[in-house]
Structures are given as structure tokens and as C-alpha cells.
Design a protein around this nucleic acid. Structure first.
Length: 592
RNA sequence: GCCGAUGUAGCUCAGCUGGCAGAGCAACGCUUUCGUAAAGCGUGGGUCAUCGGUUCGAAUCCGAUCAUCGGCUCCA
């Protein structure tokens, strides 16, 4: 790992060296190692475009052939500042000032150079030929040992990840020990693209996004809508057996509601209000919490009724910035399997555990094994940032961590990543090109009960404030489906396949028989299609396979003769020959 | 919203330095009625994303807008 890491890190310096030669005046930000390669953030005198990559690549190869040593140098902070100032490297100067004042250059996930406690005045530099960088290393000794690399894309990136800072250009490079590994990686990316849910969405007739309807507003074809319903029904079943009860809320609402909740002032993805003759301004709801709160508040509650487990699967509308939309994973109309539990503080752990059961059972059912849980906690050094009883915070954070550990799931702690109103658990899954997405979320809320002045009568006769736990298992149905499509590469297991069985007739003579069989299978609760066109059987099977339909059954002379008739199921690992009753039974078993 | 790229038929894509808009698949019609991953022939289908400009002439060059893709920021 260290060697590969050092090699990639050195490749980033070679990139910078090439850029310095080709674009005098370029200012350098940071150039860390990332998964599969490296990048360097650079402010070019003029923004470069893709064609520049091959030119830079050529220069990099030249630099590598020049066999420069990577020379390490330690100098005083002040002379380092002086050095970079003279070269017009403002970003490096800023990093050095941070190093001096804060003891680290780290902001967000940038690679950091930290002050060495024993030698607080030292900055570490690396020289590559005429190029010098502020960098703690490690590097390989000589640039000649940089392996196979490829510059592959340019992206915008704000200096130090802050929108208000100037935007630099991030040049991404892939780097591996050998050309073979690089080729394999590129090949893998090509393969991954075939599983992309946006591609499969069109190919398998699941969903589409139409310009005239609007960006981020997907429409679902029948097959996609069935898939949606299967997934949502699964969740509904899971909820029912755990005592969650449905409620229902409207999709538009007076702005007053969001004044109370505080969203109007704080939430920036709200669609503008509708222009109505009414005095009140009406908004599309971007979230459901306030409605749940209002419904709770509209009647009185006793400690005996707690917890209340209320759910509603409903669509929210969020005006996400245009550049942030992608397929189904980031949309403007998102359906949440939303649930709010109103609980006494002593019930928090039990309720969260119940939710974790549900996450567990759901992820197993859909075959998600490769996920991790982010425990977002408060920052103990910044207590005043958070509202609510510190004791409840402490207890619930401990409970969240403990409960996740008990499950044996991969866990990451996000210190200071809690919302101001409570700690949370986020369940993360990667898409087919490796981007992480949040699906399930479990959040404690100590804010909204306060703002809406929610109450219940406790056993001691006193009026108390309940705790609210938000929870969504799918997160958003759309995003979940996007991930699910990629997870299975569109080849869904029997129980999720929009079409489970396609009947393919050999010729016209068998259509009426096939129609009868189709009706029987449909009556048995299976999702069946009949291909009675005059295409050849081979073509019908091919078409069925392309649509990734689990079972294809050819209906011809043989099938109509046998008693009970025997069919051959194409699409199994080994084709399956079974009679009618067993066929129905087998299909039903697989559908569970 | 920001940086870069892209936008040609339902889908996948050709179309060179400006000179009559193309292919495969799909659709439709005819022939064929056929046994396990593509039968044959034919027909229709496009304001070349939109709007504007340059030009005798624009899919092609320029500008703006919209959308998509990869990132950044933000987020379920």
C-alpha cells in the first residue's frame, strides 16, 4: 500500500511539474492520492479543457524519462512562506500560514502537513527537477519508477471545498504499478457502465426523465412502477408486523407550517410558493416532519399510548440545484417511506433497535451486504451548537453506537456530523461507479417537539415532551430503486422481477394453449407475458433474455402433448423440465 | 449554482476543413408458422436540443438558453 501510495503521490508531483512547465503562472492547491490514482487542484492562467490532458500527459512522460530524484528538504516556515510568495503560489502561502497558526494544513479531507511538536518551525518541501512543492511525502525515490498512469478527467473544485472560495480545476489521474492493472481498471469501468441504472432504466423500460416534464422528475413505465410497488409493499409489510400504523398527509401546505418548524428560514431547497389568490402562501412539501408534528399535536396523548409509530410513504419536492441531479439517485421528486416515532425518552433504545431490525431484514432481503453505517454524533468541544438535553444526547449517542456494534456492521463515526437537533445513523451504499449514497436514515429529533410544543401526560401526572425519532428505510424510493437496479444489474430475482415468466410460442397453432397457460399462471399470482408474435423461437428467447426476464417457457408441440404437460424453462442455470403443477409451485416459491 | 465535456430517428451511433441528413436495432406492412440467444423483402420516421448570429449556403462556425454526463458544493 505504501509503495503504491507513494508512487501515486509522486505522480501528482510529476503532473504539477508538467503543468508548471506548460502553463507558467499556474497556481497550485493540493494534490493528494485518491482511490486508484491522484489529483491535483490547479488554478490555470486560462481554464484548460480536455484536449490539454494529452499534452500534459506527454510532458509527464518526458519528465519521467528525465529521471529526477524526489529531493526532500526541511526549511523554516518563514523561509518557506518567502519562497512560495516569490513564486506567486498564494495557495501554498495560505497553507503555510495555517500550518504556522493552527499546526495543520488540514481542511476537510485534504492531505495534511502537521507541525512536528519537537520542531515547530519546520516545513517539509519536495523538489522534482525545477518544481518545488509543500508536501510531507512520502514519495518514491525517483520519478522514473512512476508506473502506468492516465489523466482522465478535469473537474471544478472549490479551493478548500468552500463554495465561496475561487474554483480551481481538478485534474484527475489514474495510476497503477503496471499497464495491465490500469487496463483492467479501465475495462472494469466499462463493464460497470453497463449496469448503470440510467442505461438499464431505458433498456428494461423501467423509467424515463422527459425534458418537457422537468429535470429530476422521473416517470415510471409499467415495469418500473411494478418494481416500485413491490419494494414499497415489502416495506409496508415490514412496518405492519412491527406495529407501525399509516397516516396520510397532503402534498401542499401553508407557509405558516414551515415558519413554526423553522424550515422557511433555514431550508434552501424549497420550491417557491404558489401564486394563489389566497392570502396564505402555499408550498409544495419538501419534507414530512412538520405534518407529522401537527397531527400529533392535534389531540392529547398519554404515556400509556407511547410510543406512537406513524408512517407515510409520500413524495416530497425539493428544488435541488441543477448540477446536482443524477438519474434516480438524486431527484427533485423523492418518495420517502417516512416514519416518525413519538416516544418517551426511556423508549429510545427499544425503538431504535426495532428500526435496526427492520434495516437488517430489508438489506438481507435485497441482498445488500456491502454497506456501512455512519454514526453522526455531536462535537463534544462545541456543545452549544446543539439543542436539547445534553443527557439525552449522551445517552442516545452511546445507544446508537452500541446498537450498531451489536449488529456487527461496518461502522464509521462522524464526530460533529450530527444535525443540530439530534444524532443520527445513516446507512451508506456505493453505486456501480463507486459513489457512496445514503439510503436508510435514523435520526433523533429534539428540536421539532420543542418548536411544536408536543406533549404527553406522564404517569406522575406531569406534562412532558416526547422525543421524536425520524426513520426512512428505503430513504427515498427513487434512490433505492436506482441502487437496486445497479445491484442486480437489472437481472432481478424472481420475487422482484417486473415480468417473471415469458411464454414464447413456437407457432400460431400453440397460441390458444399458451394463452390458457398464461391465465393459469396469472391466476396463481405470477407476472406473466405472452409473446405470440410470428418471430422465430430463437429470437423470442433472445428478446426475453435481453429484458432479463427470469423464466422463458417455449410452448410448442411437445408441451401440448404431455399430460400433465411438461415445460422447459429457459433462463435457469440449467434448463428446468417440470410439469404444470410443479411449475406453478416452483415459481411461487421463488416469488416469496 | 460552479468547472469541463456532450446533445443527430424510439434506442445505439456515423456524418472530414460549411454544399441535397445516414446506418443498425426497434416500429409498421407483406412473405414465412418455424423448437432454444437475431428469418427475408419492403415502408414510414428527423425544424440535426432551442433561440439568435455569420454566410450565396449551417447538423457543421460564433453567441445565448435548456438538458444530460463527470466532478465541486449541497443532500434522501
Amino acid at each position: 500500500m505504501t509503495d503504491l501510495h507513494a508512487m501515486r503521490h509522486t505522480a501528482a508531483h510529476v503532473l504539477a511539474t508538467a503543468v508548471e512547465r506548460l502553463y507558467p503562472g499556474a497556481k497550485f492547491g493540493v494534490g493528494p492520492v485518491v482511490e486508484n490514482g491522484f489529483y491535483y487542484d490547479i488554478l490555470f492562467p486560462e481554464p484548460i479543457s480536455d484536449e490539454a490532458l494529452s499534452v500534459i500527459e506527454k510532458e509527464m512522460k518526458k519528465i519521467i524519462s528525465e529521471k529526477h530524484e524526489m529531493v526532500r528538504e526541511e526549511i523554516s516556515l518563514d523561509s518557506a512562506v518567502e519562497f512560495f510568495k516569490n513564486r506567486g503560489q498564494d495557495f501554498k502561502v495560505e497553507l503555510l500560514k495555517d500550518l504556522k497558526e493552527k499546526g495543520t494544513t488540514k481542511i476537510q479531507t485534504d492531505e495534511a502537513q502537521d507541525i512536528d511538536a519537537d520542531r515547530p518551525d519546520i516545513a517539509i518541501l519536495y523538489h522534482t527537477g525545477t518544481f518545488t512543492d509543500l508536501c510531507r511525502g512520502p514519495h518514491i525515490e525517483n520519478v522514473k519508477d512512476v508506473g502506468a498512469f492516465k489523466l482522465w478527467k478535469i473537474a471544478g473544485a472549490y479551493w478548500r471545498g468552500n463554495e465561496k472560495n475561487p474554483q480551481m480545476q481538478r485534474v484527475y489521474g489514474l495510476a497503477f504499478e503496471t499497464q495491465k492493472e490500469l487496463d483492467e481498471y479501465l475495462n472494469m469501468l466499462e463493464e460497470a457502465k453497463k449496469r448503470d441504472h440510467r442505461k438499464l432504466g431505458t433498456e428494461l423500460e423501467l423509467f424515463t426523465i422527459i425534458d418537457e416534464v422537468g429535470p429530476g422528475l422521473p416517470l415510471f413505465y409499467p415495469k418500473g412502477a411494478i418494481l416500485r410497488r413491490l419494494v414499497e409493499n415489502f416495506i409496508i409489510e415490514q412496518q405492519e408486523k412491527r406495529g407501525y400504523v399509516p397516516i396520510w398527509i397532503p402534498h401542499i401546505t401553508k407557509g405558516r407550517l414551515y415558519e413554526i418548524s423553522g424550515h422557511l428560514q433555514k431550508y434552501d431547497a424549497m420550491y417557491p410558493p404558489m401564486d394563489l389568490p389566497d392570502e396564505a402562501q402555499y408550498y409544495l412539501k419538501p419534507m414530512n416532519c412538520p405534518h407529522f408534528m401537527m397531527l400529533y399535536k392535534s389531540t392529547t396523548h398519554s404515556y400509556r399510548d407511547m410510543p406512537l409509530r406513524w408512517t407515510c410513504t409520500t413524495t416530497n419536492y425539493r428544488y435541488e440545484k441543477s448540477g446536482e441531479l443524477t438519474g434516480l439517485t438524486r431527484v427533485r421528486s423523492l418518495t420517502q417511506d417516512d416514519c416518525h416515532v413519538f416516544a418517551r425518552p426511556d423508549q429510545i433504545e427499544q425503538e431504535i433497535n426495532l428500526m435496526l431490525d427492520m434495516v437488517d431484514e430489508t438489506y438481507r432481503a435485497f441482498g445488500f451486504k456491502d454497506f456501512w453505517v455512519r454514526v453522526s454524533t455531536s462535537d463534544p468541544n462545541n456543545r452549544e451548537k446543539y439543542i436539547g438535553d445534553p443527557k439525552i444526547w449522551e445517552e442516545s449517542e452511546a445507544a446508537l453506537s452500541r446498537l450498531v456494534e451489536g449488529r456487527g456492521w461496518k461502522k464509521e463515526i462522524g464526530v460533529g456530523e450530527a444535525a443540530f437537533y439530534g444524532p443520527k445513523l445513516d446507512f451508506m451504499v456505493k453505486d456501480v461507479i463507486g459513489r457512496p449514497w445514503q439510503l436508510s436514515t435514523i435520526q433523533l429529533d429534539m428540536n421539532l417537539p420543542e418548536r411544536f410544543e408536543l406533549e404527553y401526560a406522564d404517569s406522575d401526572g406531569k406534562v412532558k415532551r416526547p422525543v421524536v425519532i425520524h426513520r426512512a428505510i428505503l430513504g427515498s424510493t427513487e434512490r433505492f430503486l436506482g441502487i437496486l437496479i445497479e445491484h442486480y444489474g437489472g437481472a432481478f430475482p424472481m420475487w422482484l422481477a417486473p415480468v417473471q415468466i415469458r411464454l414464447a410460442t413456437v407457432s400460431e397453432d400453440f397460441v390458444s394453449f399458451a394463452q390458457k397457460l398464461k391465465d393459469e399462471l396469472t391466476d396463481a399470482g405470477l407476472r406473466v407475458e405472452l409473446d405470440s408474435s410470428d418471430l422465430k423461437v430463437g429470437k423470442k428467447i433472445r428478446n426475453s433474455a435481453m429484458m432479463k426476464i427470469p423464466w422463458t417457457i417455449v410452448i410448442g408441440e411437445k408441451e401440448t402433448q404431455a399430460e400433465p404437460f411438461v415445460v422447459n424453462v429457459f433462463g435457469q442455470e440449467e434448463n428446468l423440465t417440470i410439469d404444470q403443477a410443479k411449475l406453478i409451485q416452483a415459481a411461487q416459491d421463488l416469488s416469496k
